[in-house]
């Protein structure tokens, strides 16, 4: 851990520098339009010419106006500190000083990322639990029944070849129209994405015991359930956790995608709302919250894994 801090900081600094650099050409057109409106002289002077000019030509022709590319209100690519400010404003500031914030109203503000993150987290967690359970049950069926092995696995694979963004709106519309609460509708999409890695990992895990270990169980005349509980299931645990990590990240993606078609809260709704109204900072802030949540969720599964494996005698 000790020696890894340096490289991490270097990479992070490089990424931030690259981001700042990219913000200049990305935002130059909007900045120049604004500057012209404010009465400044820009090159070239006419809006039509600027529209056809290359971004880099505009950058080098108007060096004195570039400072504003990092503080523009309507930037295409907001600078990192703008995103950080948005994050701060839409979490701490909104909750502590906002009219609808938790301090004044007693509940999280629907304009804060704490609230929207919570909405997404709920759908992610529910979808993950459903998906993981379904995945484990399907895997058990596949391992124990040849019919299921032949019939379920191809469908499971086909289900993952359909782009979820194409499928999600239809599923959401159908699920809403039959009166399912939004949380469940989103959880269904989450589960749809997360069951698959669990099935694949768990099938492999349950089949991990080799011939010798299965023969050993036969010499004891062990029942199927003994073989499952005492051999196959414990042998599958490392595989299960590896696929749960993929599954929980997929669950989060599913929940966000499920929030896109309906503006009823959640990080997905914030992202789409931001793109409707040109609020790029809002999109980025929601993206960062989603990324942070994904990291924490995967870390949580990793923590569970370490605890479980330690309890199973694996040296840490």
């Amino acid at each position: 851990m000790k020696g890894s801090v340096g490289p991490i900081v270097v990479i992070l600094a490089a990424l931030i520098a690259l981001w700042y650099a990219a913000a200049v050409p990305m935002n130059v057109k909007e900045v120049l339009t604004q500057a012209e409106r404010d009465g400044a002289v820009v090159q070239p002077a006419s809006a039509a010419e600027r529209r056809d000019a290359g971004r880099w030509a505009l950058v080098f022709g108007n060096l004195e106006h570039l400072g504003a590319t990092w503080s523009s209100e309507r930037s295409r690519l907001p600078a990192p500190h703008q995103v950080v400010m948005e994050l701060w404003d839409s979490t701490w500031v909104e909750e502590t000083t906002g009219r609808r914030g938790i301090v004044r109203s007693g509940s999280f503000s629907n304009r804060s990322l704490v609230y929207h993150g919570g909405v997404t987290l709920g759908a992610t967690a529910l979808g993950f639990v459903i998906g993981a359970l379904a995945g484990v049950l399907l895997a058990v069926g596949i391992v124990y029944s040849r019919v299921m092995d032949m019939s379920v696995m191809p469908w499971a694979i086909i289900s993952q070849t359909i782009p979820i963004v194409a499928l999600a709106p239809m599923m959401i519309v159908v699920l809403y129209s039959v009166g399912l609460p939004g949380l469940f509708a989103k959880a269904v999409i989450s589960a749809y994405l997360s069951f698959f890695p669990v099935v694949v990992g768990m099938v492999k895990g349950l089949r991990a015991p080799d011939h010798m270990q299965l023969d050993l169980m036969r010499t004891y005349n062990a029942s199927k359930s003994d073989t499952f509980w005492k051999l196959r299931l414990p042998a599958s645990v490392p595989y299960l956790f590896a696929s749960l990590k993929i599954g929980i990240a997929a669950s989060l993606v599913g929940a966000i995608v499920g929030e896109l078609p309906v503006q009823r809260g959640g990080l997905g709704a914030r992202m789409l709302g931001g793109s409707y109204y040109g609020q790029t900072e809002q999109i980025w802030a929601a993206l960062f919250v989603a990324a942070l949540m994904a990291a924490l969720l995967v870390w949580f599964i990793g923590w569970l894994e370490r605890r479980t494996l330690n309890a199973m005698g694996v040296p840490s």
């Binding site: 010798m212 270990q213 023969d215 050993l216 004891y220 414990p234 199973m312 005698g313």
Partner: peptide, 16 residues
């Protein structure tokens, strides 16, 4: 359960 069988590898369960 008339016999005990010892395999070529010990094959102990690592989680026990």
């Amino acid at each position: 359960r008339a016999y005990g069988y010892v395999f070529q590898a010990a094959g102990l369960y690592p989680w026990r």
